[in-house]
Every structure is written in structure tokens, then in C-alpha cells.
């Protein structure tokens, strides 16, 4: 059997406020294998982002089990999760989320700093990541000096600089025009081709086209799971 990066059973998430209880996830069973590119789709409020946050260990489920690379996450401590996260995960956000006070180069280097990578190694890897994303000439710019597309490429460089097993992307093209959007999607699928597992939340059917599999979420539950024939076909060609 192929290795599972993500394996959830009956994943639930409820938000309780003083008066109401909202169910964001109502029992999600999801298996994602190594090397897969999965798109999660669905209308606003269906629980996509909640699911992604739980998968990214930024949030914890109210119920159900979640295994990440075989580790049972529901029982992990905050510190253990932080460790798994920095060693295995890369995040790409809709709003880029670069640190304004750091330059392109410093933003990309940040995950390596928390991994304790040596200075020489960091320089080399950041350089590679910047070159891969075509932003090396912007290395000492601050985020606000870059276009949206460039910022997202910096974000992807940052997400991939530590060679994570899994990249989680939350509407990565949401704030971009179509040209830059396509650019970003191409980058993501190239990364996937190179072996990185990608899970992406998106509203855009055209972005979803890049995935192997499309999971449709509705009211906190998976309603359909489609294999993207086009992508498979393209790969087979």
C-alpha cells in the first residue's frame, strides 16, 4: 500500500460560543497519499479552511482521529506539533502573509532559522529557492515593494525552502490576477511533479484542474470525490 501523508477518520470541529454551537466539520474521512495533489472545493463556510488548518496542525479537531505521516496528531502536544510542522509542512496563503519588516531573502530564510540550519546552508538553499521562483533579483526588497504575484512567489519559496513533505495552500490565487494566478499554479504543480504532496483549498475550478483529485465539501462533510481525469491523462501522455 502506498504511504499516506494524511489519514483522518470522522474528523469533527465544533465552535462553541456563549449561545450557539457551530459545526464546521461533521465527520471527515480523508486519505491523502504521498505525491498526490488534492484540491478541496466547496462554497464559503463549508469548512474548507477549518479542514486545512487542522491538516496543517494550526487548529485541533474536536473529535475524530488525524494521523500525519503515521503520527497521531490528536494526542500530540503543542511543542510536538510545532516540531512536525516545521519539519514537514509548507504553507501558502491567499494573503501571502509575508513579514513586512523582513526582506524577501529574510522571509524565505525564516523556516530554516527555526530548523537550526547552518548559515552557509541557509544561504545556499535560499538562493536556490529564489532562483527556482525567479525572484533572486528582488532579494533585498521588502514585501510591500513587490507585486502580488511576486509576493506569492516569495511565499511559495518560503513554503518550499525546507523541502517539506506537504504543502498546504489556502486559495493561493485568490488575490492574484489570472496571469499571475496561472503562474503560481504552474509552480505548485511543478513542485508536485518533483514529489511534494500538495493540498489546496480553492474556489476556482480552473485551479482545481491542476489537481489529481478534487474533494467537494459541503456543510462540513465530504460530498463528492472526483479523480481529475484530465490531469491523470496529461500525466500518462
Amino acid at each position: 500500500m502506498e504511504e499516506l501523508v494524511i489519514d483522518t477518520k470522522n474528523l469533527q470541529k465544533r465552535y462553541v460560543t456563549d449561545t450557539v454551537e457551530t459545526t464546521a466539520l461533521a465527520g471527515v474521512d480523508l486519505k491523502i497519499a504521498k505525491g498526490e495533489f488534492v484540491a478541496i472545493m466547496g462554497p464559503s463556510g463549508c469548512g474548507k479552511s477549518t479542514l486545512l488548518n487542522i491538516l496543517g496542525m494550526l487548529d485541533s479537531p474536536s473529535d475524530g482521529t488525524f494521523k500525519f505521516l503515521g503520527h497521531d496528531i490528536s494526542r500530540a502536544t503543542e511543542r510536538q506539533r510545532a516540531k512536525l510542522r516545521k519539519e514537514n509542512l509548507g504553507f501558502v496563503f491567499q494573503s501571502f502573509n509575508l513579514i513586512d519588516e523582513l526582506t524577501v531573502e529574510e522571509n524565505i530564510a525564516l523556516p530554516l532559522a527555526y530548523l537550526g540550519v547552518s548559515k552557509a546552508d541557509t544561504t545556499k538553499r535560499v538562493q536556490e529557492a529564489m532562483e527556482r521562483m525567479g525572484i533572486a533579483h528582488r532579494r533585498s526588497h521588502f514585501p510591500q515593494q513587490l507585486s502580488g504575484g511576486q509576493q506569492q512567489r516569495v511565499a511559495i519559496a518560503r513554503a518550499t525552502v525546507s523541502n517539506p513533505a506537504l504543502i498546504l495552500a489556502d486559495e493561493p490565487t485568490g488575490n492574484l490576477d489570472s496571469v499571475h494566478g496561472r503562474e503560481v499554479m504552474t509552480l505548485l504543480s511543478e513542485l508536485n511533479d518533483a514529489g511534494t504532496t500538495v493540498v489546496m483549498v480553492t474556489h476556482s475550478p480552473s485551479d482545481a484542474e491542476y489537481a489529481h483529485r478534487i474533494v467537494n465539501l459541503f456543510d462540513g462533510q465530504i460530498v463528492t470525490e472526483n479523480v481529475n481525469v484530465k490531469r491523470h491523462a496529461a500525466e500518462l501522455l
Binding site: E78, K83, R85, I99, L110
Partner: peptide
């Protein structure tokens, strides 16, 4: 807040 969130995402734990 964003900086904090980001640092956590890329692997900072609370003590750091």
C-alpha cells in the same frame, strides 16, 4: 499578530 502567526506556521514554538 500576522508575524506571530507566521512564525508559528513555519515552526516557532511558544517559548521561542
Amino acid at each position: 499578530a500576522k508575524e506571530v502567526g507566521l512564525r508559528k506556521v513555519v515552526g516557532a514554538d511558544r517559548s521561542q
